[in-house]
Design a protein around this nucleic acid. Structure first.
Lengths: 385, 385
DNA sequence: ACCGTTAACGTAAACGTTTACGTTAACGAT
DNA sequence: ATCGTTAACGTAAACGTTTACGTTAACGGT
């Protein structure tokens, strides 16, 4: 019944069905003892049976030049073992054929992608996009690409991002932890393995990895010192979640300054927020109810500080006469708010640059030695304090 | 003289030098007719001659399980042709060995990297980082990674970025042109080739590629309409460089509104800036010298608008009584400046999201049909106008 | 004429996957 | 017992490079 022809003997008799393989019927020709499967009719077999639209490969160049792939590779890589004329000819040919190396194949062989993975917690704050800008610039100048992953301040996302990046896609990982991250096993398992890791800005202490840090502790101390010298005694401190390294360090700096000046710590003056407008507003409301009254506010971010200034002004509280306000980060917004925001410039961009510089150095040297670098910042005085 | 031993016959006589290959001396043993090179002494041949620290591969799993690579691959990919028990066993084995697929190898075979390339002109403006955030989110949810390149508003960098990304690293390209870009050959040569391209926000017209656009023309028209209705007759317009699509379109909207209301265009009221503080300041100075006096300013960006407000206030010019100020983009800073900035919300984040959505759709469908999408914005009225 | 030498090229393995295609042993029906 | 059938596995090519190692033809010296 089946009108199947054996591709070998062209016979149509003595053909048996011989099982189904991958949903295709297989046949067996008893005449020539040959198993076969009827291929799909090759339609579209038009005049261009060669490469459809794919990129030019070394093989393509080699075919045209009449040499082997090796020779082409040698020519393009300026390797010694090749005749100069051959080399120049191949180079020109490659250019005329618009050859572009397949980076995937190169990376597979070389076990190096020239790509950095960056995990940042958010893109909604200029702090992080500025750091990213610094990373980008240094990386780009060193011939590295940058894959960014936005953890969205979410711990699970951070873990997933790392998983994805680690699968041979990157040569180094830069990470700034999410607000939620308080356990670091997802980092620890990759330490000292295939690629170097550098933490920046928000870091996990106790892990043997390099860090690029802002002057959190010293900065907070200096700012507090300044406010105390200006006469403040009731300085409120707006912090992030307690597990955050910058929260802990800035609190420590604040605390040291208070101690130094013999001022007792009033825990009612501490607030932990998630950086959202509502939580900042809530913290401020609480502070304003406290007696004795607060006379200074140090905010963990300029963005929150700017919001605080707006809120205080709505309540007709005079800045800096009644309450001094100090920010952290030197964001653009601090120059727009009125009065302009005094702030501790953490040199955000430099942090990004240094992080990139360090990890690239570690990639190139193969040396994963733990290094910590503190980027020194400075107080910028404007109208708010 | 040479005390070289033939590795085959162990003879030390009848050995001749036989050329230098790759800087290594080659020898020829006449006794056993054999060419050879003395290898470097293999030091460090310690107790672990296996894989040093590299990742687990399919081959490793296959060896342990006593099956072929194919079977392992089938198990992990849930392919049919495999015994269920075998599959489960291999899956568990893979998990216990902490197998992670090598994405490079997968990409090489599948000709797909699940990665999007994004070229943005700057990371110093929240407009772009916000769009990037939108792109990132959609991409990430669809299982795509994002490689970002920052052209730094530089045409050459933009071209270099594209070159790098196109070499098989990405499945789709999202691009927002630099301020300098006015020729688009670097884009044209890639159109309709291997991967889809989508322009967003700042686009090149006349190219057959999809675009995601803000409501530049309509938005500018609405804003101008609004100011005219409020009584303004001398509305200054702060624009970017002339070659920029958003410059052209927003000017057109402005122009149409003027025409509609029978107001003559005064070219002295147009200023083209590069978004830097100085050029904005200069433009404002020039405007203030003009007679009849201006009574409104529309800025191409909120950032510049905020700066303008600060400058006007320093000159004790009342906003909005003397001059109405309108921004574009609804950036955070507009809520901080006083008076708060009225602005046209271009829905920056949505633009990013839609751009990512469109290109992923094109990647998956393989359909590079040209689509243009306008993201409708809305006027947000605050104190400045 | 022969031999040692080397410039310049080629072959093939390797990187880690995916997948088209082959193979085989066991099973059920006759 | 024989034959047709198929589940379940293996082999090998392919993706595009890089590179260790082989090969060869020509050249110069004797």
């Amino acid at each position: 019944m089946s009108r199947v022809k054996c591709p070998k003997c062209q016979n149509m008799e003595r053909i048996l069905k011989a099982g189904i393989i991958r949903n295709k019927q297989r046949y067996f020709c008893k005449a020539c003892v040959y198993h076969f499967i009827i291929k799909k009719v090759q339609k579209d077999n038009n005049l261009l049976p060669d490469k459809p639209a794919s990129q030019v490969s070394l093989q393509d160049i080699a075919s045209v030049a009449g040499v082997s792939i090796t020779t082409v590779s040698r020519a393009l890589k300026n390797r010694p073992d090749i005749n100069i004329q051959t080399r120049e000819y191949i180079k020109e040919l490659a250019k005329s054929m618009n050859y572009q190396p397949n980076i995937l194949a190169q990376s597979l062989v070389n076990k190096s992608t020239h790509t950095l993975g960056v995990i940042i917690p958010s893109l909604d704050t200029t702090v992080f996009s500025t750091m990213l800008g610094g990373i980008q610039e240094v990386a780009s100048k060193a011939g590295y690409r940058v894959i960014i992953c936005n953890s969205n301040e979410n711990h699970e996302t951070e873990i997933a991002n790392i998983q994805g990046l680690m699968n041979h896609l990157i040569d180094g990982l830069l990470i700034c932890h999410s607000i939620q991250t308080s356990s670091f096993e997802h980092i620890r398992i990759h330490i000292g393995k295939r690629i170097p890791i550098v933490q920046f800005y928000r870091v996990a202490n106790g892990l043997p990895i390099s860090q690029i840090l802002a002057e959190d502790e010293v900065g907070a101390e200096k700012v507090t010192d300044y406010l105390i010298k200006k006469g403040c005694r009731r300085i409120a401190l707006l912090l992030g979640p307690k597990n955050l390294s910058i929260t802990q360090k800035r609190f420590k700096g604040y605390q040291m300054s208070l101690e130094k000046h013999g001022i007792n710590l009033d825990i009612r003056l501490l607030a932990h927020v998630d950086f959202l407008q509502e939580s900042v507003e809530k913290a401020l409301e609480d502070w304003l109810k406290i007696n004795p009254k607060i006379d200074g506010i140090i905010s963990i971010s300029d963005k929150s500080a700017a919001q605080i200034i707006r809120l205080l002004k709505k309540k007709s509280i005079k800045i800096p006469e009644e309450i001094n306000v100090f920010g952290f980060g030197n964001e653009f917004t601090g120059q727009i708010v009125e009065p302009e925001l005094s702030t501790f410039d953490t040199r955000t961009r430099i942090i990004g640059e240094e992080a990139a510089r360090l990890i690239i150095e570690q990639i190139i040297s193969g040396n994963q030695e733990v290094k910590s670098k503190l980027i020194s910042g400075e107080i910028i005085l404007r109208g708010s304090a």
